[in-house]
Computed example of a mutant assay.
Amino acid sequence: MAKINYLELAASNLPAVKNFYQTVFNWQFTDYGPEYTAFSGDTIDGGFYQADAASSQAKGGVLIVFYSDNLATTQHAIESAGGNIIKPVFEFPGGRRFHFTDPCNNELAVWSDK
């Protein structure tokens, strides 16, 4: 049986995306040349590759969803680090969530059952 264990996302600005995720989620980065950086932390490992593309749910991209014990605190951290909230907090069966874009316009979300 196979399982997902690594994600790769496009990033038009590797230094900006590294700073954002390190600030908000405390990810650690390892550069592999000027056009690729791998991340690790308290989540699945992955990497960012240099490209002008961006992932969005509206364009059929996979939506990566983080869990948070405190949506307000996480939202504040995202906004303070340069992320943009593109869908404000909304309720769904089982919890609440919001969507944001990182500095390279990749769309992600954060949810909580709290």
Rank of each mutant, 00 (worst) to 15 (best):
Q50T: 00
Y36A: 02
K18G: 09
N13H: 14
L14W: 00
F48K: 04
L71V: 07
Y49H: 07
A51F: 06
L14Q: 06
N26I: 02
V62M: 06
A54Q: 08
T73I: 07
L63V: 09
Q75F: 00
A54E: 05
Y67V: 12
V65E: 13
T74C: 05
A53F: 11
S55D: 06
Y21S: 04
N26Y: 06
W27V: 04
Q50W: 01
G46W: 03
G46Q: 04
A58P: 00
G46V: 00
F39T: 00
D69S: 13
S55V: 13
T37N: 00
Y32D: 04
Y21N: 09
K18T: 15
K59N: 14
D42M: 05
Q28V: 14
T73W: 01
S68I: 09
G41D: 01
P15K: 02
N70C: 11
D42K: 03
S40F: 08
Q75I: 02
Q28N: 14
Y36L: 05
Y67F: 10
D45Y: 09
G47T: 05
A72W: 10
S40K: 10
S40V: 09
I44Y: 06
D69M: 10
N70K: 13
F39W: 03
S40W: 03
V17T: 14
F66A: 13
K18L: 10
G61S: 09
F20M: 06
D42S: 12
S56T: 15
Q28G: 13
G33E: 10
N13D: 15
N19G: 15
Q28M: 15
Q22F: 10
F66W: 14
D45F: 06
V24S: 05
L71N: 11
V24N: 01
Q28W: 05
D31T: 04
G61M: 07
D45E: 13
Q28C: 08
A72M: 12
Y49K: 00
Q22I: 10
G46C: 01
L63P: 07
K59Y: 00
Q22S: 15
N26K: 15
A58R: 01
A72I: 12
V65D: 11
L63D: 03
D45A: 14
W27K: 03
T74E: 12
